[in-house]
Simulated assay, not measured.
Amino acid sequence: MTPTGSPPESRRTRDRVVRALLFAAVGVSLVITLRGMDPGHLWTVLKGADWRWLAVAVLANAASQVTRAVGWNAMLTGTRLRFPLLVRIEFAVQAAAAVSPEGVGEFVRVGYLLREGVARTVTVTLMLVRKYFSSLGLVPFLVVLWWPGSGVPGWAVAVAWAYLAVLTVETVLILRVARTPRAPAREGRLRRIVFDARTSLGSVRHPRVFAELGVAAVATRTLDLVAAVAVARALDLRLTAAVLVLVLLSIEVSNILPTLPGQLGTFEAAVLGATAGFLGQAEGLAFALVFHAQQVLPQIPLGMMAMAGTSIRRERTERNST
């Protein structure tokens, strides 16, 4: 018999096979897309990058971690945490996500918030809510894809409509689930977990919290777009607003796929797919690599410093309390 809480061997094998096939598909698509590319031209594009615009992109990325923390500050009404701590946790989570398999970064968040008195069920539920709002924050920018003369291909418009349809369904489900729950009529661990999860959505039911989450999400996506514009300017690539929004949409959709640490491979494939027809192979790969690097590389040292600072403060608090 399989131990309680451990997935069956057949399921684990199936997950490994599906993950391997997805990685293989991404690898094949990259090889096909970049076949015949001139590495020398790629190096020329990368070497000519303007470091001043790259600095703008990095600053926008760092600022987006603060706006994400604003969203968490709005949701955590039951357990009020100091905002600087939430910012450090956000940097720590992003650093963990950059160097570990998918989902591990959020386990770091669960651990940090658990030490601050936030139950696992509450954290996991709010993570799903934050992900929803993060996706919702991209919606206002999708309007540029329908502008006359935007030049985006038909498949991009279809993906945008599908994205809106999925978010509409999620909105209906969240509004339905977020209603004040009744206590379970019968005892049971699963019923208790569901009740606790729905109870933790209490803060989201308040219009003020809902509005703060929406504003924080739009601000985060604005900073993502600023970073994309800055990277394009750094590499002297003339990309329209519609193409850059399509890049963000493609990256967002690629997040549903199992990935290597830091979205390595799937991120580049998403960017290359979005810029195909607008940039050459070398220019497209250069943009993908630099845009990915400005998101991942600064987060690792900043996140490690945030984790170290949080641990030191925790130890001092524990010593002072004894």
Results as ranks from 00 to 15, higher is better:
residue 58 V to M: 10
residue 60 A to W: 12
residue 61 N to V: 12
residue 61 N to D: 10
residue 62 A to C: 02
residue 65 Q to H: 14
residue 66 V to C: 15
residue 67 T to V: 10
residue 67 T to P: 08
residue 67 T to Q: 08
residue 68 R to L: 02
residue 71 G to M: 01
residue 71 G to C: 00
residue 73 N to L: 00
residue 77 T to Y: 04
residue 77 T to I: 08
residue 79 T to G: 03
residue 79 T to P: 08
residue 80 R to C: 00
residue 81 L to V: 03
residue 81 L to H: 06
residue 81 L to D: 05
residue 81 L to W: 04
residue 82 R to Y: 10
residue 82 R to S: 15
residue 82 R to C: 02
residue 83 F to L: 11
residue 83 F to K: 09
residue 85 L to Y: 12
residue 88 R to D: 06
residue 89 I to R: 07
residue 90 E to H: 10
residue 92 A to N: 04
residue 94 Q to T: 09
residue 97 A to Q: 07
residue 99 V to R: 14
residue 100 S to R: 12
residue 101 P to N: 05
residue 104 V to A: 14
residue 104 V to K: 11
residue 107 F to E: 12
residue 107 F to C: 06
residue 109 R to N: 07
residue 110 V to C: 00
residue 110 V to Y: 01
residue 110 V to G: 00
residue 113 L to F: 04
residue 113 L to E: 00
residue 116 E to T: 00
residue 119 A to W: 01
residue 120 R to L: 11
residue 120 R to K: 08
residue 122 V to A: 13
residue 123 T to Q: 04
residue 123 T to K: 08
residue 124 V to H: 02
residue 125 T to C: 06
residue 126 L to T: 03
residue 126 L to P: 04
residue 127 M to G: 04
residue 128 L to P: 10
residue 128 L to C: 12
residue 128 L to A: 13
residue 130 R to I: 00
residue 131 K to S: 13
residue 131 K to E: 11
residue 136 L to Y: 07
residue 136 L to E: 11
residue 139 V to Q: 14
residue 140 P to A: 04
residue 141 F to G: 13
residue 142 L to C: 15
residue 144 V to Q: 11
residue 147 W to L: 13
residue 148 P to S: 04
residue 153 P to T: 10
residue 153 P to E: 13
residue 156 A to E: 15
